[in-house]
Amino acid sequence: MNVVVSIDGSDDAFAVFERAVGRAHETGDDLTVALVESALDDAATVADRVHETLSEASLEAAIEHVADDGELVDLANGERFDRLVVSGGERTPTGKLSFSRTTEFVLMNANVSVTLAR
């Protein structure tokens, strides 16, 4: 399976990426990492961390730079991918699931399967 995992500015996006790396190891999925530049303060530093994590895991993955959520969805909707993994799905104080604007945008516009990871 060809999986694209996005890294945006959210707190747990990097943890979600690390889990995707672990999973790709087990499943043999082809992994692509999409850096959402509009959501990142310092995309270059994040890219360095991504390279570091990939080399520690001895995993090869393509890194794509996308400008915003729209380009992320365009990338995921392309023929190369079967699944998009994004961080998302917080809980409110009463325990309700809530989605960020980004997550809602992705859920409404992606044509591929979307996995929300926390």
């Binding site: 809980r91 325990g95 699931l97 809530s98």
Partner: peptide
Amino acid sequence: DRAQGIPP
């Protein structure tokens, strides 16, 4: 009757 994942 569950809404947004609650109650479990």
